[in-house]
Amino acid sequence: MSIADFVRDLTVQVVTISWFIFLLAWFVGWALKGSPVPFYRLKRTGQSLIEDAVIAAFWLALGSSIFSLISYITSNVAQPMPPPPQP
């Protein structure tokens, strides 16, 4: 197994873990928000956990698209340079 494959496998595992953590955060967030405890700060924490989890899931889903967009743009930019001006 080459280093690239190893890193790719690691990335896949991290992505999987990341989805589970999103689900976990989502549930924890709703559990906190919906808990019958009259503490406003606790409900706020649950709310922010849900928001963060949603944003993270959004970027996670968009991740490969972002990287391919960057590759696309830079491969278009990296055209051969014009020759330098002659004095």
């Binding site: 992505v15 990341s18 953590i21 976990l24 955060a25 967030g29 944003i55 991740g63």
Partner: peptide
Amino acid sequence: YNLGIVLYSLP
């Protein structure tokens, strides 16, 4: 990138 997202979404 993915590690960053994991950290961000930690409950």
